[in-house]
Design a protein around this nucleic acid. Structure first.
Lengths: 335, 335
DNA sequence: ATGGCGGATGTAATCGTTACCACGGACCGC
DNA sequence: GCGGTCCGTGGTAACGATTACATCCGCCAT
């Protein structure tokens, strides 16, 4: 591989000068500069970011650890993050935790060894040691969507409580009284809070949320299927299933379909996180939409503030309800 | 940040010894080893992968440049790639080209500067200079799904011709005669070949593929919508639309829905690339499924062979047709 | 004429590791 | 008892960049 030395000797200058033109420092004569540029082109030289990072102590790279790449919400988030980062001259390295704490730790460790400048994480669990240590050690860090309580780390997320309330109102208006939820792992904030918001909204309508109507999922498809099966085997199954993310909703649909049940006639369905496919499912699914793109942009902005030595505050956006046909016919507006 | 030197002085040994235990070289006495390990733990030391890479000339990292993260096919591929790589001790850095050649080049350049050990790419265009240069320079490289002709780079992909033929047979049997396709950019091999396979299959049935029935898409949702709109404005619209990827199929569904057309009664729809959502769309979509996971695994295996100095050959798997209701009722088996 | 100044360039230290070589001591065989 | 091996360990030169500091040179003001 050609190095800065090769360029220097070909251009007849010192490595310092080459470095200067590469980092376009003003203090180099136009003639020299163009000779260096020519040498770079001739040799097809590409600066070695590894060496550069070793010397400068920054990598211009952000780490993003997401809970599940297969979840369209997270891939949209990842995309927004990458866009925002690139616009500011940073690249991003994604780690997919696949909803497994061990895998998440693996990625955090790897990213830390790589000396990424800052870390964006949507934690899969609650009390993570690796992440705690990193935060304590002063690694610039921002949580997106989910977070870990008790850490002094800015959080960028969307508050879904109002939307959940709207959803319950919608369901109530349609005559539904027995509502069930498939929640995420209670160690995750989103797992916890979505159930909490749902319960609070139900209370406002004087509706109970019995234990057997709170299914335990892990945000992945299969758990949605299982929880749905459990609901359906109850002596008195619910009239509505609210899945706390889109993948569990997919699982629920799998199971309903397998049993030949029709939505919304036999049972209603709603989901947290809206995705393009929900418009075309049978039937289109009522969902709570997060401002995913903005979440990503804000998170990157906050993280870069931290990385560059400024301070950053948490950001709370709001999610909104998008009603479709999956809970029953009514005003039935879509999108 | 604590370095190997700090560990060395705390353990009362030299940096060389610390390095030895870190890379578990056998030549170190158990007692010394445990003192070093203790020092590492006390200090919370994390090896600096940047420095290590500078010295060893490898990063144990693979680059993966995919055409579009928002496409479930590619995210599934990415996931498989990451799994396979991790199992072999490599990490992967993903670059999302968003179907734009310029962005793809940006990522390839960045990855090359990062000195990734090898590159997995699913090219967005046909004649890429950056990629050609990299290949010529001897960067270990493997193409997945799509490739660039005329380069001596192994290709791991799925042959869809038989499946396309089956699809056409299926459509023919259902009585369809006017079949249209929304193709990808002709510079991409998948764009090109899928149209070619479709045309060949039609010929086998004595069916024409008029120019106005070959829509020009770019593998993204919006282009599928536009091409569909164009088809529908023809004096004689097609009876079937075959989208060359799932995102364009989504766009097609958007447009059909907007116009109040029903699938398959008013028009039939099929897609290349099967995804979980297709089972639950209205109606479930007939699609050609690629062995995505295996594609990812094989590609990683081939790339690592190259990286580690072995040779690697191209791999061709085969795609298969999954019939659902979107082309009309018949035997109607699903999944 | 000379001292001073500033702009362009070179020299060399440095970042954190690894890997090569050297060294000292223990052990073995004769 | 002595030379040779082997084993555990330390010293140190790279790896490829950046950057503080030194140097050189031309020019201007006095």
């Amino acid at each position: 591989m050609t190095s800065i030395k090769d360029v220097a000797s070909r251009a007849g200058v010192s490595v310092a000068t080459v470095s200067r033109v590469l980092n376009d420092s003003p203090a180099v004569r136009p003639g020299t500069r163009s000779r260096v540029i020519a040498a770079v082109a001739d040799l097809g030289y590409r600066p070695n970011a590894v060496a550069r990072s070793l010397r400068t102590h920054h990598t211009h790279t952000l780490g993003l650890v997401i809970s599940d790449v297969l979840n369209p919400f997270f891939t949209e988030l990842a995309r927004a993050v990458e866009d925002a980062a690139r616009a500011r001259g940073y690249s991003v390295v994604i780690g997919n935790a696949d909803e497994r704490a061990a895998l998440q730790d693996h990625h955090v460790r790897t990213l830390l060894e790589r000396r990424i400048d800052g870390l964006l994480v949507s934690p899969t669990d609650g009390g993570n040691e690796v992440i705690r240590d990193a935060a304590a050690a002063g690694t610039p860090m921002v949580f997106v969507d989910r977070w870990i309580r008790g850490l002094d780390v800015p959080v960028v997320h969307a508050d879904g409580r109002a939307a959940v309330h709207d959803l319950v109102a919608h369901l109530y208006a349609l005559g539904h009284r027995r509502l069930a939820i498939i929640g995420g792992p209670s160690e995750t904030t989103t797992g916890d809070e979505r159930v909490g918001a749902f319960r609070a909204a139900l209370e406002a309508y004087g509706l109970p949320l019995p234990r057997e109507y709170t299914g335990q999922g892990d945000f992945q498809t299969e758990s949605g299927r299982r929880a749905t099966a459990a609901f359906l085997e109850l002596p008195q199954p619910p009239e509505v299933i609210f899945a706390a993310d889109n993948l569990m909703a997919l699982g629920a649909m799998d199971e309903l379909r397998r049993r030949g049940l029709r939505v919304p006639d036999d049972i209603a369905l709603a989901a947290f996180d809206d995705i393009p496919w929900f418009l075309h499912t049978d039937p289109p699914v009522t969902a709570i939409a997060q401002p995913t793109g903005e979440l990503g942009h804000r998170a990157v902005a906050a993280l870069i503030d931290l990385v560059e030595g400024r301070s950053a505050a948490s950001v709370t956006l709001t999610a909104r309800l998008v009603t479709r046909r999956s809970c029953g016919e009514s005003e039935g507006k879509s999108r």
